[in-house]
Simulated scan of single mutants.
Amino acid sequence: MTSIQRAIALGLAATVLQALMLVAFAWPAVNLAPRDLPIAVAGPQSAQVTQRLHETSPGAFEISTLTDAEAARTALTDQEIYGAIVTGEGAPRVMIASAASPAVAQQLTALAQQFSGAPAAVEDVVATAPDDPRGAGFGSMVLPLVMAGIAAGVLLTLLVPALGARLAGLLTFGIAGGLLSTLVFHSWLSIVPGGFLELAAIAGLAGFSVAAAIVGLAAVLGRAGIGLGALTMLLVGNPFSAATSAPELLPQPWGTLGQLCPPGAAASLLRSVAYFDGAGAARPLTVLLIWAAGGVALLGVGAVRARRSPGQIVEPDRATVAA
């Protein structure tokens, strides 16, 4: 292939990548809608409200019936539901947890107004941080964490030949990156409340798992591993992370798949620890640990291969490199 042919091929490949990124980022945004969204109804008119919800919005909500407002408040703080419509004397009122999803909170508030025909009384049981009332800052944190993890993984792969040294670089990035990023979004911008060290550990684990996935894939697959890891995080992990919405608002199975990638798991884990005292943290924590351990395991596979071929290790930009 000549230089001109190679240049044209790369230009076409970049065009396809551009189109894929537009689809990945724009398509979820224009298709946000409740899909089996967990909510509750409470009070003496629960049956009527439930029936009306099923009639007006079939398939939109997964509705549970609770005894009263106190039970709804407990379910909200335990992250079992996103909101509740409480009936009784007078117009229904809505209870929300905007920290779980400002987008869902807005939708449920509008829904309650449809029932009452007037502005509904709203109780925000678990509110977002005062300096980030709409959750915009929280949603904007995900992409920098992903991009930094990708950059760390690519640079360590390209510039550090020894696989053991790459692991040291990953650990350094995870610890230092977690501390510094938390200084920014917690101590300076006050986007996320909670304990500094806990949030730093989550941010560090998120960055580490992204970088480890790329380093590990590159150790096994070479240059293709960098592309596979980076594109997975950019085209699947980030746009379907639900950091600005909720997994149940995204088209399925993408909402679920997004929670199985580091960006979505990191956003969910940060929410759980910062706002809900760890309720619902087990699953996203497990996802991040699996990605981190998987990346390290792949790096170990690359190290074993290097030992079997003395003096050589797999590099993404050349066939062999002196160890």
Rank of each mutant, 00 (worst) to 15 (best):
A100N: 14
A99K: 13
G227K: 03
V154T: 06
G264D: 08
T74A: 10
L66W: 06
A211D: 03
L197S: 12
T244E: 11
L288S: 10
P310K: 11
F61E: 03
T87Q: 07
L156R: 12
A84K: 02
P130C: 13
V273I: 15
A29Q: 15
V122G: 07
S98V: 03
D36C: 00
V321Q: 14
T50C: 02
Q18E: 01
H54R: 15
P34S: 07
S268G: 07
L288N: 06
A24E: 06
L170S: 07
R6C: 01
A303Y: 05
T15P: 00
T128I: 00
V314G: 10
L108M: 15
A224F: 10
L158Q: 05
L260P: 01
S241E: 05
L53R: 09
V321F: 09
L217A: 15
A105Y: 09
R271S: 04
P119T: 02
L180H: 04
V30N: 03
A303R: 14
G135L: 08
R73E: 15
S181F: 14
R93P: 00
W254E: 02
A265E: 13
E315K: 10
A266H: 06
L76Q: 08
A279T: 08
L299H: 11
L299F: 08
G237R: 12
E62K: 12
L288Q: 05
L156S: 11
L299Y: 13
R35Y: 04
A33M: 05
G139H: 11
T256A: 09
S245C: 03
G169M: 09
I191Q: 04
L156P: 10
V304S: 10
G311T: 09
A84R: 00
G216E: 04
L205Y: 06
V126Y: 09
L205T: 13
L12A: 15
R305I: 00
L298Q: 12
G264H: 09
A212D: 03
I202K: 06
T320V: 12
T182H: 04
G264K: 11
P130G: 10
L217H: 07
R166G: 05
V184W: 13
A24K: 07
D132L: 08
L228N: 02
Q312M: 13
L260E: 03
A243Y: 01
R166P: 01
A200H: 04
E123F: 02
S190E: 14
A152C: 11
R52M: 04
